[in-house]
Amino acid sequence: MSEDRSFSGREIAAVLTFVVLAGATALVSYRSGLNVAGGSGGAEVAAAVASAPVNGQALYVGNCAGCHGAQAQGGVGPGLANSAAWSEADFQAAVLHGKGAGGRTLAPVMPRFAEAGLDGKDATPEQIGAIHAYVKGL
């Protein structure tokens, strides 16, 4: 019982109409995206992300908690309770260059975030300050 069924003209017209409308919608959406902010295609989104406040907790969790513990209690690396009292400059030197308070060199296992970066990008003073503020609040 094999029955050859062909599509009716109405079914073919409906499918073609759908394809044309979907293509037109995609094209209009694509071209509208290119015209955002004078043709920069997403510059507004990047600017909104760039101006968002730095989240010290998220940076700490993503870059520090693996060694220093979720609550900075220590683990592979030491606890950070004492670093809460460090000056901003001392904290930055430790995080960026592996130099602790008083200029002592930290263990080689401590990443030098000036070279390694935070989250795949160059570390900024604002990010280090946000991490320090988060650690102080623990």
Rank of each mutant, 00 (worst) to 15 (best):
A47Y: 07
A85H: 11
R5V: 15
G9A: 02
G137H: 13
A43N: 09
Y60N: 04
S8K: 00
C67S: 07
F91L: 03
S40E: 06
M1G: 10
K99L: 15
Y30Q: 11
W86A: 00
G77H: 07
A50M: 11
A116I: 06
I12Q: 06
H97I: 13
Q71E: 07
Y60V: 13
L34T: 08
W86I: 00
Y30N: 12
E11C: 06
A52K: 04
P108Q: 05
G42W: 15
R112D: 14
G74T: 00
Q57A: 01
P78H: 08
A47F: 12
P108Y: 13
A89R: 06
G66D: 15
R5S: 10
P78C: 04
F91C: 03
Y60D: 06
T105R: 06
E88W: 09
Q127D: 01
Q57L: 03
S29C: 04
A84I: 08
S40P: 09
Q92Y: 14
A93P: 07
G103P: 04
G62S: 00
I128R: 06
A123I: 14
A94T: 00
S32E: 15
T124S: 05
S87Y: 07
G129L: 12
P125D: 10
T25S: 08
L106Y: 10
K99R: 14
G79L: 14
G100N: 12
V54T: 02
A93V: 07
A52G: 04
T25E: 08
A84Q: 04
T25I: 12
P111I: 10
R10K: 09
L34P: 12
P111Y: 09
L80G: 02
S8N: 00
N82H: 12
G75E: 01
L106A: 05
H97A: 08
I131G: 11
V20S: 04
G74D: 00
L138V: 05
D119F: 11
A130C: 11
N82T: 14
W86V: 00
G137T: 14
A48P: 15
F18Q: 01
G129D: 10
D90T: 06
D119V: 11
F113N: 01
G23V: 14
Q57R: 01
A52F: 02
R104D: 14
R5E: 07
C64G: 03
G56R: 03
L106Q: 02
I131E: 13
A22M: 10
